[in-house]
Design a protein around this nucleic acid. Structure first.
Lengths: 242, 242
DNA sequence: ATGCAATAGTTGTATATACAACTATTGCCA
DNA sequence: TGGCAATAGTTGTATATACAACTATTGCAT
């Protein structure tokens, strides 16, 4: 006769127990910064597990930035002084959807082709290379909230201007065409220029949040987006939107 | 006689080879979103490795958000449409040091104790709970660049006002006293108030970048910091500073 | 045809083992 | 004492194995 046992309580894996034990030591102050934590072999004995299990606990805590490992030397509590936080930069339509079921609309204002030298420098291109430009105004509940001005490397995304961006945002289109990219950002507080004032229906004395976002693929820079939002209209939470 | 062989080229571990292979398939578009990637057993055969090695490759790509795994079903290419980027929020002294060996100074402007109801609400405290306040001006090369106004939960950090912050910043002190915390942020573009204008030596029409940062420990909210920087003076790179 | 049990396939956890690569210490020899 | 080789200890990579947990399909009995 066989009996099937069912775990009602959440099973806690062995490596999780070890992780919690180590976290507790650090949180309670017993293990200060740079403290040498028990080696894999020591944990193996203390918790009566295999070395691979002890290793997994140390490994995952290292990935979380709580421990630091050095081959040949040992594992140590990381310095948490210069612990840095992260701010998420998100897709604007995702953002608006999650902030309550508000309506997100967008309006394409302008599409053009440029060969300007200034713009080429912004994109790290040569002066004679083609750049596409698009200007999209994003709405939330019929209120304009963000102006998106985007320069796109024509060589990498030749069909960019053929899109009309009614179904997807420029960001979504580029993510499809040139996936697995990296991005760098600059954030500034600025006064909007005349165009932006008009589109966002604000006065030219109102401070705006401006994010410049450069995205890269393995073949080079894909686009530079300049997003401008009126500071008082669009307060950002734990993340910026794009 | 024994011969020692030395690897001149960087050794590439087997699991790394598998990771690169998978990444290539995805980057080149051969494996689209939601594509079912080979199972651990299949990879084991294809690459002539053990299952644990194949597993490690899938595991690490999952941690990077490139794959998604479902027990019992399989491993799939993740959706990269709403891929979100991250903006790092860093310690201000670290930041200045790394931007070239510029000098970072700070000047403590004010320390006080408050029991104001407004402030208590900001910190999610009851109206009668004590709050400390500090105001520190940060300099880079003798130029004021950031004003840091900070409200601190007195119950959690009773000795906050005893510090004079000549050696460490308030942020560093709090990180020591209440480590392993989480934080939420709000970013706004604002016009500086009169105090801030005076300290930062800017006019009251100049837009400023303002970050509100709430830090939490397991015992509750620790502090609310309001950091104000003149937009034109302090353009932020890939990270905000604190 | 419907419902249900058995089954094959997949990922998750855990162990035992072996060797490689690196570090710090020990101890010997000059 | 100074320099160097041997050694012990630590983390990194890799394999083989076993079983648990979950999912989707297959196939049988009603």
């Amino acid at each position: 006769m066989s009996v099937t046992t069912v775990n009602i309580n959440e099973k806690t894996a062995k490596y999780t127990v070890i992780k919690q034990h180590i976290c507790h030591k650090i949180e309670s102050g017993q293990w200060p910064q740079h403290y040498k934590v028990p080696s894999e072999n020591e944990l193996t004995q203390q918790f009566d597990v295999s070395r691979m299990t002890a290793r997994r606990a140390l490994q995952e805590l290292t990935e979380q930035g709580i421990l630091v490992r050095a081959q040949g030397s040992g594992t140590f509590v990381a310095t948490f002084k210069s612990q840095s936080s992260l701010l998420e930069i998100r897709n604007i339509s995702d953002e608006i959807h999650e902030r309550g079921h508000k309506h997100h609309a967008k309006q394409l204002m302008l599409k053009s082709i440029t060969v300007s030298e200034e713009v080429a420098i912004l994109l790290n291109l040569k002066a004679n290379e083609q750049v596409f430009f698009s200007q999209v105004l994003h709405f939330e509940n019929d209120q304009p909230i963000q102006l998106e001005q985007r320069y796109v490397n024509a060589a990498l995304v030749p069909e960019y201007l053929l899109q009309d961006f009614t179904d997807i945002t420029p960001h979504e289109y580029l993510s499809d065409v040139a996936p697995l990219t990296e991005a760098t950002h600059e954030i500034e507080a600025v006064l909007a220029n005349d165009d932006a004032c008009q589109f966002l229906t604000i006065s030219n004395t109102e401070p705006c949040l401006q994010v410049k976002r450069r995205t890269w693929s393995t073949k080079g820079i894909v686009s530079l987006a300049i997003l401008t939002a009126a500071g008082s209209k669009y307060r950002l939470g734990n993340h910026l939107v794009f």
